[in-house]
C-alpha cells in the first residue's frame, strides 16, 4: 500500500509540476519540454491504476507524437525572445482563478463519489481492450466512428495546410 502511495505521490508531483512549469515558464520551448514530464507523470499514474496499455499509449502518442509536433511547430516560429515577466495582469488572472480552484478543492474534499470497491478490478490487458473495442456489443460503433471523425479532421487539416491550386483549374 505504501509503495502505491509513494508512486502516486511521485507521479502526480511529476504531472502537476510539469504542467505548472509548462504554464509559468517564460520560454515556450521550455514549456513544451516541461510537458514531457507532465505526460510521463500521467503515464505513471495510469500504470499505478493498472492500466498498462493506456500508460504506454500515453507515452507513445503524447510524448512521442504530439509533443514532437509541438516542438517542431515551435521551432518553425521565429523566436521572439522570452515572454515578458508576468505583471499585474497575471496577478489579476491568478486572483480570478483562485476562487475557482478553492471551489473545486472544497468540492472534491466534501463530495462522496460512491464506493470505489464497486468499480471492477482493473485488468488492463491488451486482449480485453481489443475485444471490447471490436465486438459488436462492445465499443465497435464508437471505435469505427472515431476513424471517420479522424478522417474528417485529416481532410480539414490537409485542405487548410496545402497550397492553393492554380486558379485556372475550373473546367
Amino acid at each position: 500500500m505504501t509503495g502505491e502511495v509513494l508512486a502516486f505521490s511521485l507521479f502526480s508531483a511529476m504531472a502537476v509540476g510539469g504542467a505548472g512549469l509548462a504554464l509559468f515558464h517564460r520560454s515556450a520551448i521550455h514549456s513544451a519540454f516541461a510537458l514531457l514530464a507532465s505526460f510521463l507523470g500521467v503515464a505513471g499514474l495510469y500504470l499505478n491504476l493498472g492500466a498498462d496499455f493506456l500508460a504506454v499509449t500515453q507515452v507513445l502518442l503524447y510524448a512521442g507524437g504530439i509533443l514532437v509536433l509541438y516542438l517542431f511547430g515551435l521551432m518553425l516560429v521565429p523566436p521572439e525572445g522570452e515572454a515578458p515577466r508576468p505583471g499585474r495582469r497575471a496577478l489579476a488572472l491568478v486572483l480570478a482563478a483562485a476562487p475557482v480552484a478553492i471551489f473545486l478543492i472544497a468540492f472534491l474534499a466534501r463530495s462522496s463519489w460512491g464506493d470505489p470497491s464497486r468499480l471492477p478490478e482493473p485488468e488492463g490487458t491488451v486482449r480485453g481492450i481489443g475485444l471490447a473495442l471490436l465486438t459488436p456489443d462492445g465499443w465497435l460503433v464508437p471505435f469505427e466512428y472515431a476513424s471517420i471523425l479522424l478522417l474528417a479532421a485529416l481532410v480539414g487539416a490537409v485542405h487548410l495546410a496545402r497550397r492553393s491550386a492554380p486558379k485556372d483549374d475550373s473546367p
Binding site: F33, L36, V56, T57, V59, L60, A63, G64, G65, L67, V68, L71
Partner: peptide, 8 residues
C-alpha cells in the same frame, strides 16, 4: 513508445 522518446 520508449523509442519515440529518443526523438525528444
Amino acid at each position: 513508445a520508449i523509442a519515440s522518446l529518443t526523438t525528444i
